[in-house]
Design a binder for these strands. Structure first.
Lengths: 196, 196
DNA sequence: GGCGACCGTTCCGTTTGCGGAACGATGGCG
DNA sequence: CGCCATCGTTCCGCAAACGGAACGGTCGCC
């Protein structure tokens, strides 16, 4: 369920502002606070934020700043992602592939994105070529995956690993009736120089 | 000109610690945007935020609201957590290996655990044999890793992948002076018990 | 019952993040 | 060469998020 999170410009904002994310954040915050066994006033005191701020945040009637979120989560001793990741984390949907971004690892010259991927049975998904030097690495959890360059796809069953350079058109498809679960690692070398 | 006596512009921080300030967020945002190959103006247009907002955000001179972060990350197609970069989930520490559990995938007869692993330079870490049928899969992000069965270790450099069956004693070590960053996937056939 | 401590919400003045507009810098093009 | 589009930064009025104070409500204790 991909919900459109584009926020209309604030012009003509005659409706009560309740952006999609704030509600869930408030609910999760209240749950975390109650799990910690402290009152709203006490948390406000520890986090050095106003009670009004905290109250509005838990009820979803405010649009908190990043600094506020950091203060509150630090006082609770939880990572800030505990408030934000409760809903769906980054889900990228293609025509036949659904990938959930687990982590981004940035090593200066190279960036890695680690996904968990699900390929349902059905028609293959075609992907256009990425930038030069991009490679993809897949380890299959379950099912049988056919993936790789469109002209020379590879096969991988449970526990197997395949990789290819994705600077050519490539594709993903599940072989058989079973959906494929896999981890997908995309490696982006630092392409600071655009191609003419 | 506003006189700000406490601007932390380009503070040459000695350690790569998680700075709760917006500075790290700005750096990551700029990197993600350049990786997507779009200009600041273009991203501002797509995300329906002002260029001033985006500029100040990338330079760490603003304290963005959650709504702004939602809009920008949605326009980039990345999860909001990609900006906050704090995946401090479960952390497993060995004598020479630090692994962060990213996700557990339970497929009935098989359980997968996906880690991000860091092996600092120094003496190797020895691991005793796991249960029969357990396999490990490593994809190296940076550095050179020597890993695998103690009597026949394998080598892998950046972007390379190695795997082995870990039902025999095995080891991990960084080759050279550079720490090794890698993803580690452990596959436990037949409902295995989590690692103590 | 009266009273004080604490709860979470609401009101209010101040602070600040917001988008739009204007700015100088840069590059493509006739 | 001038012209124009686009880049990223800076200025500015406005709306909103902020902390502090006041509010009504509930509980425990004398």
């Amino acid at each position: 369920m991909v919900h459109d999170s584009r926020v209309s410009s604030r012009a003509a904002s005659a409706r009560p502002a309740l952006e999609p994310g704030a509600e869930g954040v408030g609910v999760r915050l209240r749950r975390l606070r109650e799990q910690a066994g402290i009152s709203l006033s006490e948390l406000a005191r520890r986090a050095n934020v106003g009670k009004a701020t905290l109250s509005g945040l838990e009820n979803g009637t405010r649009n908190p700043t990043l600094e506020t979120l950091w203060s509150v989560t630090a006082a609770l001793g939880v990572p800030i992602t505990a408030l934000l990741a409760g809903g769906q984390t980054g889900v990228v949907r293609g025509t036949a592939v659904e990938a959930t971004l687990l982590q981004v690892f940035d090593d200066g010259p190279v960036t890695y994105e680690l996904y968990r991927m699900v390929v349902p049975p059905g028609p293959a998904q075609a992907s256009p070529a990425h930038h030069t030097g991009v490679t993809e690495h897949v380890t299959v959890f379950s099912g049988v995956l056919q993936a790789g360059p469109a002209d020379a796809p590879l096969l991988a069953g449970p526990g197997e690993h395949i990789s290819w350079t994705s600077d050519v058109p490539h594709r993903y498809a599940a072989v058989g009736d079973e959906p494929v679960h896999a981890s997908l690692l995309i490696r982006y070398p630092r392409a600071a120089s655009p191609q003419p």
